[in-house]
Amino acid sequence: MNDKIRHILSQITVLEDELRTSLQEQEGRLRYQIEGKRVEFEHVVKDAHVKLKRGLFAWFLTVRPQNYLTAPIIYGMAVPLASIDLFVSFYQLTCFPVYGIARARRADYIVFDHQHLAYLNVIEKFHCLYCSYATGVLAYAREVTARTEQYFCPIKHARKILSAHRRYAYFLDYGEADDFHVRLEEFRKLLAQELECSAAPENDSN
């Protein structure tokens, strides 16, 4: 990886931090705060949300017919999604300690908080919870796979791929064969450092 690419990647990191800060500021303007696992809005905002909620009868009247037809297919995906969740969790629980890789924290990817939105009726909340679970499981599985790829094969593809995981940009270029095995060990050392960092707070609290 040349200096120009390193510079661009560092700029991306800075921009991502700025974006995260801006999003947090926007959340503050929406006047809610997180208390434990609950999200609490100011009373004025919450009252306005309640008034915007669509009743079940009105909601059923506005649902498109094709949505009813495809609902069994959509919710039928719950079984494979739950299987992915289970097997990915089992895989990293058993294999990552052997490889010296920090486990991805499932709760960082699978987040349920839409049920606190008063402008959603009970069915809309259920839809949101399902979508949150589905996207969360896939993001969680992707991060576990990305860490595995970094351990075994941190090499980019010859062709451009869309929406690569966050570790991909730092992988070796396709065909970059010089000292491959030495550099592979460097990637593994980085994973080991992540493991040490994730374990540090636990050690400090003892």
Rank of each mutant, 00 (worst) to 15 (best):
Phe171Asn: 00
Glu186Ile: 12
Lys4Glu: 09
His114Gly: 12
Pro201Ser: 10
Gly36Lys: 08
Ala104Cys: 12
Ser205Gln: 09
Cys95Gln: 13
Glu18Thr: 02
Arg31Cys: 11
Phe152Gln: 05
Arg147Gln: 07
Arg103His: 07
Phe96His: 03
Asp108Ala: 14
Arg188Gln: 14
Glu16Trp: 07
Asp17Glu: 12
Gln26Pro: 00
Leu56Phe: 13
Cys197Leu: 11
Ala71Ile: 01
Val50Asn: 00
Arg20Lys: 13
Thr62Gly: 10
Pro80Arg: 03
Asp173Gln: 15
Gln92Glu: 10
Val14Gly: 10
Glu42Phe: 06
Arg167Ile: 03
Tyr75Arg: 05
Ala71Gln: 09
Glu18Cys: 10
Ile5Tyr: 04
Lys37Ala: 13
Ala158Met: 09
Tyr130His: 05
Phe187His: 11
Cys153Arg: 04
Val45Gln: 07
Arg183Glu: 07
Leu69Ile: 08
Tyr99Arg: 14
Gln66Ser: 12
Ile8His: 08
Ile155Pro: 01
Leu184Val: 11
Ile161Arg: 14
Arg142Ser: 15
His114Ala: 14
Gln11Glu: 14
Tyr151Asp: 07
Ala146Gln: 06
Lys125Arg: 15
Ala169Lys: 12
Ile110Thr: 04
Leu138Val: 13
Lys53Pro: 00
Gly55Lys: 00
Ile101Pro: 01
Thr94Arg: 15
Arg188Met: 13
Lys156Leu: 09
Asn203Glu: 08
Val182Ser: 15
Asn203Gln: 14
Glu124Pro: 00
Leu56His: 03
Ile155Leu: 13
Ile155Lys: 06
Asp113Phe: 08
Ala78Gln: 02
Leu52Gly: 05
Ile12Lys: 13
Pro65Gln: 04
Leu117Pro: 01
Tyr91Met: 11
Val45Lys: 08
Trp59Arg: 05
Gln92Ala: 06
Phe180Thr: 07
Arg166Cys: 03
Glu16Asn: 11
Leu81Ile: 01
Gln24Ile: 06
Arg105Cys: 10
Ile101His: 00
Ser83Cys: 14
Gly28His: 11
Gly100Thr: 05
Asn67Pro: 03
Leu190Arg: 12
Lys156Tyr: 05
Ile155Phe: 10
Ser22Lys: 13
Ala48Asp: 10
Ile12Val: 15
Gln92Arg: 11
Ala48Lys: 13
Leu93Glu: 08
His127Trp: 15
Ser198Asn: 12
Cys153Lys: 06
Ser198Glu: 14
Ala146Met: 10
Leu162Trp: 12
Lys51Ser: 14
Ile155Asp: 04
Ile161Trp: 00
Ala71Val: 01
Leu23Gly: 04
Ile110Arg: 01
Pro72Arg: 02
Ala146Lys: 05
Pro65Cys: 05
Val79Ile: 11
